[in-house]
């Protein structure tokens, strides 16, 4: 199976959600890195230049939005897919302001995440 260019970085504090995503995405031929929270991601000084972030909104410490704001302040421009328990209009508005490309609701309906990841990675050509 041909590997799609780019690494998917998953930030989620729930271990089961994390490893299930890794399983589902690797089956699709994507390379995946896991982080158990914002601290772990921010501590990684070797983020790939090509890839995308899949970030859980509700996490202890920094929430998904604050994490993305922190990354943007560090000039990390990777496209972001935010996964939220509930994604109301307000959240989508604020997310758009932080330069978040996709906001998805849990549980992820069939294919929505893969579609978002593929189009996020497609921006690298």
């Amino acid at each position: 199976m041909a590997r799609t260019a780019g690494t998917v970085l998953i930030v989620d504090d729930d271990a089961a959600v994390r490893s299930s995503l890794k399983f589902a995405l690797e089956v699709e031929g994507l390379s995946v890195r896991l982080y158990d929270g914002p601290t772990a991601l921010l501590a990684d000084r070797d983020l790939p230049l090509c890839g995308c972030l899949v970030v859980d909104y509700r996490m202890p410490g920094l929430d998904g939005l604050q994490l993305v704001d922190t990354l943007r302040a560090r000039n990390v421009t990777l496209p972001v897919i935010l996964i939220a328990g509930r994604a109301n209009k307000q959240l989508r508005r604020v997310a758009a302001k932080s330069g978040i490309s996709y906001v998805l609701e849990k549980p992820l309906s069939d294919g929505a995440l893969m579609e978002s990841i593929r189009s996020a990675l497609a921006s690298y050509g």
Partner: peptide, 10 residues
């Protein structure tokens, strides 16, 4: 929702 998400992914 967390376990449901994991189940759906697997």
């Amino acid at each position: 929702n967390q376990p449901l998400t994991a189940i759906a992914n697997y």
